[in-house]
Structures are given as structure tokens and as C-alpha cells.
Write a protein that binds this DNA or RNA. Structure first.
Lengths: 264, 264
DNA sequence: GCGGGGCGTCTTGTATACAGAATGTATCCA
DNA sequence: TGGATACATTCTGTATACAAGACGCCCCGC
């Protein structure tokens, strides 16, 4: 997802972005620019400057700006135009809590309403793959990106399990905030002293929530997913305390030092 | 609302409240058209037809279309353009459940983190006003719209009480679905045989949630708001069974008869 | 009679031109 | 020297022109 595709910047964009429409190109490029911190929090985004940066006319850029505003990365300026949003640590914890709540709802609905056997099989397959991966100690970057992909897939399967388009939409929106994604802090997590332990616990959450869904235990499934999301809290805290690891968080540039803000 | 203004040509000064900008005019008008059912579910929205309907150029209309798609009222057509979405009964119940869950989260956060005394005062004032209103039997339309306004205000105050911009955003989005708003079913509710009783219960939820927040009882506050949202379920059921009352639900035109779909 | 291909129309996606508003600066006056 | 005003610059909001693509229709061939 965002961490995976983040590599292609403007210079290399000729291959990936060309195929899509200008609007999509503008959307992806702009998002990358914001997440990479090239457009800093609070910066007003001048459409013309984006025009010369991306070689796209104003129309698709404006489309992208509207979408990014809806997405939460930009905010409307009273006098007109958009500015890059800034996020406090509180905002991030809230976003994580929201994701946990909605994933909890998804798990509960899946449990209460039941899921198709095939969906359960896919979930269990995913579990097994993660098990196999974390059985061996985390080593190569290859292993790591496999873990990211599998984790992503597990959460996607869970979202599907609720079988609710409306909830899926809301979840997608909640996860869209860069640091609210289930994979937002995995890179930080790998740096933790207790990295292996956290991964073990996370996978236990995964396993238990599948069991709870199968056993139609809605309340348990919900509680598990909430707690699961809260694993990100300790990663967030660690990342904020150790400046070195902060760069591993996608969209870290959007985080506003809150000490200064509160001092005023 | 009343589409009685057919006369205004380009040169005329705009008299409506939607004179702010062409974009918001297009947004509001389009939303009204969709909710009123003049653009039916599944209809592809041709930009040019909207141009001649609203006397606005394509640019602001496209802006509005993007926003309405993000809002959930429209969906992108693979080949390009937008179509009006259709909603099943399940979609509606899910939307209500999502609102309840997020309002529950808001209430819990307010309780756990504490709210400013002034916010508590405003909530209690609002409670008192609703109390005074429902003490007398529901009579005039005037009374009724007062109730709607007060109910709206109470929920808004509750959303504020969480003091979380991120959650507020997500809540706003959840409530944006026409039948997910706290006030979506009040008109139907008034038609229920047990109308007075439901209103009494609803107000008791309000009162108890404020007490729970004041007493820092997060779990209770959350549970109350969830249950509170579920009051809408019985209203929804009633509305769907009695065709006459269906028209009282905003956006009823977007609801797809699910019996036919399931019979096939 | 039926299927496929070519063509015309309509639609969206994109670029650009134009106007009004906001902002910053420089100058003038007190 | 400070403040205020007028001006110039730059921005966004809006309209419109243009082009590529989708869809439907009709005709032709089999």
C-alpha cells in the first residue's frame, strides 16, 4: 500500500502514473508529495505551482485537491484554496481508536451475522501464512514486506467479512489517514526491543478474532479488534520518543510538535 | 425544496440562499434533486443535463459531483461519469449502526477524558429544553420542528464533547448519509402508535448519557449511545412496512425494494 | 435472418482564457 | 517615523473550447 508504492517519486513517475488519467496522476503525486513532507503542514497549495511541478493542467489538479480535502490531508482555507493539514499526537491516537472501533464493529457484525465458509477459509489461510512467516525470526527486508502484505490482506479480509458496503466505505476512509492504517507502524514496530513479542500478540489477536467470528461471539470479536488496534499506541509512543524512528511512520511530516502548540 | 424559480437567467442577481458560490449552489441543488428522487437510483448523471437544469457551467458541477461521490450518494461508473447510488435496507441499518458506534465512541471519549464544565452546562440546558418541549403532548408543526432542532443540537453538542476533530469528521461523514442522521426518522417516529413512549425513552438516553459522561463512566456512556441509535431501527421497520410513511424518510427514493431482489 | 464492423453522436476528461477577490508592497501624508 | 491607502501582482473560481473515448445504430456481408 502506501509504504510499498511510496518509492516512485516524480522523476520516476513516467512508468506508473502515465497509464492512468491525469486526475489520478495528480492525486497520487500530490499525496506522495504531502506524505513525503515536500509540502509541509500549513503550506498553502498554490495550484499554479503544482501545475509546473506535475506538468498537468489546473483542472485535474483541482479534482485531486477536492479529493484530498475529503480524504483529510488538506483543509479548506477561508479565503479560498487549500492548505496541508497538521496533526497532533491526539489526532493520531483518535484516528487509531476510530479504526479499532470500526474494525471491532466489522468483526462483531461478521460474528453475529455469520460469514460464508469460503471467507472463513481465506481468513484461516492468511493466519497460517503469517504463522509460517513469524515462526522464523524476522530477517530480510523481503520477509518484512511479506509480513506487511499479509497483515494488509488479513485486515482486508476482515473488512470483507462484515459484508457491508457502507461499513467498508467508512473503514476505507478511516484507514486513509496515513498513520491510521493497520500497517502504519509496522516499520517502527520492527525497531522495538520487544518486536517479536508484539508480533506474536498481534497474531494471537488475529487468530482469536477468527475463532470468535466462527463461534458467533460478537462481543469478543469486537473487543479483540479494538485491543488489536491499540497495539499501535505503543508503537506511536516509541516513534515519537525516538526521533530516529519517526521517519519510518508514513506521513510523519504531518505531525505537529504538540509541546509548542500547547505552550501557547 | 420548492423548485419554483425557473426564471433566473445568467444576468439576473441570484436571490437564493445558495448564492454563495456556484459550486455550493450546484452541490446543494444536486443533493436536493437526488434526495427528492428526481434523479433516480441507478440513473447516470449527465453533466450537460445538469448544466441546463441549474444554469451553472460544467466546472462547478464536476466539483459537486466529486464531493457527492465522496459523500456516498453517487458512485463512479467504470466507463466514466457518475450514477445515483441505491441503498438496501441492510445498508440503512448498517449506516445507523455505524452512527451509533461512532457516537458511542464520542460519548466514551468524553467520559474518559472529561469535558469542560461549560460543555456540560450546554448539554444540560439542551436536555432541559427538550424536557420542557415533550412535557406537553406533541401538537403543532412548530413544536415538532423545535424538537428536530433541539435533537440535532444535542447530538452536535455530544459530538463536540469528544473534542476530537478527527472523530468529528468521521461522524459528520457517517451522518451525511440521509437516513443515518439522528433526525432521519423523527417524522416517521411521530406517526408511530407509541410515539410518545419512544420520545420519552430517547430523552432518557440523552439524560443518562450526560450523567454517565459527568460521572466518567465511559462504558455506560458508550452503550447508551449505541442503544440510542438503535431506536431508529424500529422506526425504519415501521416506515418500510407502511408505504404511506416511507415518504417521510429523507432520501427514501434511494431505497431499493429488496423483496424483488431477493425473490429472483 | 443474423452477426459483425464502420460510423456518427454524445459524453467525459483536459486545457485554457477570463474575471473578481485577496494579498503584499510601496508610496504618500500626517 | 508610523500608518493608511492605492496599486500591482497573484490567486482562485468559473466558463468554455477542444479532443479522445464510449455507446448505439445502421448497413453490409455471410
Amino acid at each position: 500500500m502506501a509504504p510499498g508504492h511510496g518509492m516512485d517519486t516524480l522523476g520516476m513517475a513516467l512508468t506508473d502514473d502515465r497509464a492512468a488519467s491525469q486526475t489520478v496522476k495528480a492525486l497520487l503525486s500530490l499525496r506522495d508529495l504531502i506524505l513525503a513532507g515536500e509540502l509541509k503542514s500549513g503550506d498553502r497549495i498554490s495550484e499554479l505551482s503544482v501545475v509546473e511541478r506535475l506538468n498537468v493542467s489546473r483542472t485535474p489538479i483541482r479534482m485531486a485537491l477536492v479529493r484530498l480535502e475529503e480524504e483529510g490531508l488538506l483543509e479548506l482555507i477561508p479565503s479560498g484554496g487549500y492548505a496541508v493539514k497538521a496533526f497532533t499526537e491526539r489526532d493520531i491516537t483518535d484516528a487509531i481508536e476510530i479504526r479499532g472501533t470500526l474494525e471491532g464493529l466489522a468483526a462483531r457484525l461478521a460474528a453475529e451475522r455469520g460469514v460464508a465458509p469460503s471467507a472463513l477459509v481465506r481468513l484461516k489461510d492468511c493466519l497460517a501464512e503469517i504463522d509460517a512467516l513469524i515462526a522464523q525470526p524476522i530477517g530480510s527486508d523481503d520477509n518484512f514486506s511479506s509480513y506487511v502484505a499479509l497483515n494488509e490482506r488479513f485486515h482486508a479480509l476482515l473488512h470483507e467479512a462484515a459484508d457491508s458496503p457502507v461499513l467498508a466505505r467508512q473503514l476505507k476512509r478511516a484507514v486513509n489517514l496515513p498513520f491510521a492504517s493497520p500497517n502504519a507502524f509496522v516499520k517502527v514496530q520492527a525497531e522495538l526491543p520487544e518486536a517479536q513479542a508484539v508480533m506474536t500478540v498481534a497474531q494471537d489477536h488475529h487468530r482469536c478474532v477468527v475463532r470468535a467470528i466462527e463461534a458467533r461471539e460478537g462481543a469478543r470479536a469486537e473487543a479483540l479488534m479494538r485491543e488489536h488496534a491499540r497495539l499501535a499506541f505503543r508503537n506511536l509512543e516509541f516513534a515519537l520518543r525516538n526521533k530516529r524512528t519517526l521517519g519510518l511512520v508514513p506521513g510523519a511530516a504531518l505531525i505537529r510538535a504538540r509541546a509548542a502548540a500547547q505552550a501557547l
